[in-house]
Simulated scan of single mutants.
Amino acid sequence: MPIHAQDLEDLLRQSFPDAKIVVEGDDGVHMSAMVVDESFRGMNRVQQQRAVYAALKGKMDGPSGELHALALTTRAPD
């Protein structure tokens, strides 16, 4: 079952309540997300992206995952 952009944003918002989050994509399987959050300060890009993937709670896990591809941009606020 595909995931909708708003559902993905809501899921990310649970882990990053104060973040700037922008989710784009209309096919429910291939999407992009930008997450800008203070919790990323001091983390490298891999650590930031791991935190986001953990927030997805298995939605991308294996061939049965709801989301097949996610182009991800993460950073701490300027």
Rank of each mutant, 00 (worst) to 15 (best):
K20C: 03
V52L: 14
Q49C: 02
Q6V: 15
L70E: 06
A76W: 01
K57N: 15
L8N: 05
S64R: 08
E38A: 12
L11S: 02
F40I: 08
S64K: 07
V46H: 08
V35R: 03
R41L: 08
Y53A: 13
S39N: 00
G65P: 10
M43N: 08
E24D: 13
Q47M: 14
D78R: 10
Q47G: 15
S32D: 05
K57V: 15
K57H: 14
G25F: 10
F16W: 13
M31T: 03
Q48M: 09
G25E: 09
G42A: 06
R41S: 09
T74R: 00
G42R: 03
M34D: 10
A33Q: 07
P63H: 01
V22L: 14
L8V: 11
Q48E: 06
E66A: 15
I21R: 06
S64C: 07
G58R: 07
V22G: 07
D27W: 04
A51R: 10
A71S: 14
L56E: 08
H30G: 06
L72D: 04
Q48R: 09
L72I: 02
D26H: 09
L67P: 00
E66N: 12
R45H: 06
A51Q: 10
F16I: 15
V29G: 04
D18K: 10
G25I: 07
K59A: 08
M1K: 09
D27T: 05
R41C: 04
A71V: 11
